[in-house]
Simulated assay, not measured.
Amino acid sequence: MPINVLVVDDSNFFQHRLKEIINAHSELNVVGVAANGREAVDMAQSLKPDVITMDYEMPVMDGVSAVRQIMAQRPVPILMFSSMTYEGARTTLDALDAGATDFMPKNFAEVSRDSAALKKKLHDRLLQIARPQRLARSATPAASFKAPPAPERKISLKGRVNLLVIGASTGGPVALADVLTKLPANFPVPIVLVQHMPENFTKAFADRLNRQCKIEVREAVDGDQLRPGLALLAPGGKQLMVEKRGMGCVRVLPGDSRVNYKPSVDITFGSAANTYDKHVLGVVLTGMGSDGCEGARLLKRKGSAIWSQDQASCVIYGMPMAVAREKLTDRVLPLNEIGSALAREL
């Protein structure tokens, strides 16, 4: 049974191309096209799609308002299309706060030239965010998705953690905000954040977190010193590594085309393991794929601790599942408990 998609865009060109691209996959089927946010709200109710693609700037009702209304009436995975600008990033973050699941850059050139890479990325993204929702709605036992058992190892962290590194992907912007807003201004451990996000988005995201949090949050710059009460966010399109110069600092390096994720949680976790030995706490939050698993393995070999988000509170239980499946997780926590646990135990 195909996954039904509602396309929302005010451009006739994008409506046509998105419908064509989405329907090219045997598991996806466009059931409707809406030209503005108001139509999207009505069609989401009447057509009951499994997933929605949503433009951000439209007449009658904008994309963020439409997301908010749809999620209030009948929650459904929503993939936002965003411009690759600072303002576009801010709007996208508003949409994620309103309940959108994930986002993709709206690239006219890629859509126009029938890019194979764009087709694959869009197909994969829609299938990934729609499938867990469909499984959750299914009443059949065969459709249930069980997390692998992860034995919980309570390790006292007071005085032994010199660096906190948190990695996330899909659902991460909202999850990171939930965790970091619960930390006090005098949080005693430096923090490094790795969120899968394109260039231009991470600056807007760091600025947003800085306004929301008691700690200071900013996009990392090469050579930034690590210090308590400061969280440095890895820039999109680049890699962030940790070095032990002075009290510790970060290196921001160009993204390598051989690495899928830029930034990569594995690379940052791995450098933290090499630099801080057993004195790291790595936290793996919601996200597709398994980035962070190999880095977590390196941290565990050095004697560091790993926490992960539980399945029930994840938007996509991919990255946390990977570390749990490999029995690398010391504690599995629901999202709403992670920030308070960090504040209490560190």
Rank of each mutant, 00 (worst) to 15 (best):
M1G: 12
N36I: 02
N29I: 03
G37N: 08
N23A: 09
I21N: 01
V30W: 05
M1Q: 13
L6C: 07
R17C: 06
S11Y: 09
V7L: 03
Q15G: 12
F13Q: 10
A24C: 03
D10K: 10
F13E: 07
N36Y: 00
G32P: 12
D10H: 10
S26Y: 05
L28D: 03
V31K: 08
L6I: 11
G37M: 06
S26L: 07
I21C: 02
F14C: 00
F13H: 11
I22G: 05
E20A: 13
D9V: 02
N23V: 04
E20Y: 10
L18I: 09
K19G: 15
A35H: 13
I21W: 02
F13V: 15
A24I: 00
M1Y: 07
S26Q: 13
G32H: 02
L28R: 02
G37K: 05
L28Q: 04
P2N: 11
G37A: 09
F14G: 00
N12G: 13
A34D: 04
L18S: 01
E20H: 13
N36W: 01
E27Q: 15
K19H: 12
V8E: 04
Q15K: 15
A35I: 08
V30I: 12
V5H: 07
N23K: 08
H16I: 11
R17W: 07
A24V: 01
A35L: 07
A35T: 14
A24G: 14
N23E: 12
Q15D: 08
H16P: 00
G32Y: 06
G32V: 11
I21K: 03
N29T: 14
V5K: 02
I21G: 01
N12C: 02
I3C: 01
E20P: 00
F14L: 13
E27P: 05
D10S: 10
V33F: 04
L28H: 05
P2F: 06
V31I: 15
G37S: 09
P2Y: 08
G32M: 09
N12T: 14
H16Y: 13
A24P: 03
A34L: 00
V30G: 06
A35R: 15
H25E: 10
K19E: 15
I3S: 00
V5E: 08
D9L: 03
L18Y: 13
R17V: 15
N12V: 12
D9H: 05
I22H: 04
H25W: 07
L28V: 03
P2A: 14
N23F: 04
